[in-house]
Amino acid sequence: MITHSTLDGAHVLTMDDGKVNALNKEKLDALVDALAECAQDQAPVAIRGRKGIFSAGFDLKGFAAGPETATAQLQAGKDAILAILRHPAPVITLCEGHAYPMGAFLMLAADKAIGTEGEFVCGMNESAIGMALPIYPMILGAARLSPHGRKAVATSEMFAPHAAREVGYFDKVVAPEAVEATLSVELAHMKGLNPGAFNANKVAMNRTLIDQIEASPLPDFG
């Protein structure tokens, strides 16, 4: 599911289950473990998905499998977001396709989120599929999304790449043919930052957000 490679001294974590990268507890735990491995040095990390789809979001089968499995899956999503927010080196997400909710959450948690042009959408569509979001992505969205993006959570408005950038899911959107060059440039920039200063500033900026997410309760599936 997750392969770990390097690019010019930076880490690249690629999520690819051969399907749509529906994220269950096992896959999210694997992402957290991979980030922990990357944290052994101070090199930047890029997280990317399949071409055409970064992630279809949470695995709906996990929510249908009973309260225990559903709760564990949501906790794993919370843990993944916190792992990105706490990661001592810069984390870039690279989205070359659709990013449905849990995939969109990873974009919001990253230090830099890059999207690609195409017939893709990103956002939170839970109202349309009959689900209530847990509190932690609401906290993340309130901190990172524009007013339009925040209102769109309730209405399940999904955003094409450039609109997703305007509301806060992406920081930059590039043409598909520019993806690899853009990733190299962004990783080079991140490598040029002073590691200690970066970590100190990231910790300071994310402290309140992390505290709020940590304290947020999960839904009661009982």
Rank of each mutant, 00 (worst) to 15 (best):
G49L: 02
L209N: 12
E186D: 14
E166Y: 05
A143H: 12
L13P: 05
D171P: 11
P217M: 07
A188S: 15
T71A: 12
E117L: 05
F54W: 04
K202I: 00
L60V: 02
G141F: 06
E26N: 12
A76S: 15
K78D: 10
E180A: 08
M190T: 07
V32L: 07
T208A: 14
K19S: 15
G18F: 04
T6Q: 15
A113H: 10
D59G: 06
A36R: 13
T155W: 04
L74T: 05
I139Q: 07
M102E: 08
L60S: 07
P44A: 09
C95L: 04
Q73P: 05
A43T: 09
A128W: 10
Y100T: 01
N206A: 08
L133F: 03
G66V: 04
I129E: 08
Y169G: 01
E177Q: 13
V174Q: 13
H4W: 14
A163T: 00
A160W: 01
D16V: 01
K78N: 13
M15G: 06
I129N: 11
A56E: 03
A30W: 01
N194V: 09
H4Q: 15
F54M: 00
G57I: 00
S5N: 15
L85G: 08
V203D: 09
V153A: 03
A10Q: 10
A142D: 15
G141I: 05
L133I: 04
C95H: 04
M124V: 12
Y136C: 05
E186T: 13
H98I: 02
A200W: 00
L23S: 02
G97W: 00
D111I: 06
V203M: 08
F198R: 02
P147K: 14
K25F: 07
C38M: 10
Y100N: 10
A89Q: 07
M1A: 14
P137H: 02
L183C: 08
H4V: 15
N24E: 12
Y169N: 09
S146G: 14
A188C: 14
E37F: 05
P217L: 06
N21P: 11
V179R: 11
F120E: 02
F221G: 09
A154L: 04
I84K: 03
N206P: 07
A128Y: 11
I139Y: 00
C95R: 05
F120M: 04
F198P: 09
P101E: 08
D59T: 02
G123I: 01
A178R: 13
I139M: 12
V121I: 14
D17M: 00
A181L: 00
V173R: 00
K202R: 14
L74W: 06
F63M: 01
F221K: 10
P44M: 05
L94M: 13
A110H: 06
E126T: 09
S156K: 11
L7W: 10
L94S: 11
G149H: 02
L23P: 01
V12W: 07
L35I: 09
V121H: 11
D79F: 09
S216N: 10
P176I: 06
D79R: 14
I135S: 13
A70V: 06
V174L: 13
V20L: 14
S55G: 01
N199F: 04
L140Q: 08
G149R: 03
V153Y: 02
H4C: 13
D33Y: 03
L74E: 03
Q75A: 15
